[in-house]
Amino acid sequence: MKSFQQDWLSNIRGDLLAGLVVALALIPEAIAFSIIAGVDPKVGLYASFCIAVVIAFTGGRPGMISAATGAMALVMVTLVKDHGLQYLLAATVLTGVLQIVAGWVRLGVLMRFVSRSVVTGFVNALAILIFLAQLPELTNVTWHVYAMTAAGLAIIYG
């Protein structure tokens, strides 16, 4: 009982604050990745909530955030378009199983053989693909959208 209290109830204030910050950050991210993947934003919100609940009870590491990623959203675009939404769940479950197996056989140590330039190239290509996926959202809209986009870019680069 003492171990349960120490593991689960020792930092309630900090855990609630961290959970609130992560939840507020994940809501727009889940909606954006849903739009990129071509599914209803409610699907992304439900999936993000399910990921958070599963990770909360199955464990994780301090400071680790489990959520949807831009790389998966971009890959799922063609899957959803070609086969429909029902294949998205199967692909997600298969991805999770493969990640569990990769962790079990400790394939993470192979990441040290991937050079920094390869990782940088992957991240930059991902950023370009996300930008290109968002371009259709900027067509046939009012000037307010362009003003907000310019303000957001100014904040990011400022």
Rank of each mutant, 00 (worst) to 15 (best):
K2E: 12
F4N: 08
Q5L: 09
D7S: 03
L9I: 05
S10G: 01
I12Y: 12
I12R: 11
R13M: 02
L20I: 12
V21Q: 04
A23W: 09
A25Q: 05
I27S: 08
E29Y: 14
V39H: 05
L45W: 02
C50Y: 14
C50H: 13
V54D: 00
A56I: 15
F57V: 11
F57E: 03
G59E: 03
G60K: 11
S66K: 14
S66R: 12
A68S: 14
T69I: 04
G70H: 09
G70P: 13
M72D: 10
A73K: 08
L74H: 05
V80I: 13
V80M: 07
G84L: 05
G84M: 04
L85D: 00
L85S: 00
L85A: 01
Y87D: 04
A91K: 04
L94S: 12
Q99C: 09
Q99R: 11
I100V: 12
I100P: 03
A102E: 01
V105I: 13
L110P: 05
L110N: 03
R112Q: 04
R112V: 13
V114P: 06
S115F: 10
S115L: 02
R116F: 14
S117E: 11
V119M: 06
V119G: 04
T120C: 00
T120H: 04
G121H: 05
F122V: 10
F122H: 09
V123P: 06
A125G: 10
L126Q: 14
L126S: 12
I128C: 03
I128N: 01
Q134N: 07
L135G: 02
P136Q: 03
T142H: 07
A147H: 06
A150D: 03
A151P: 02
G152H: 13
I156P: 00
Y157F: 11
G158Q: 06
G158N: 07
G158H: 10
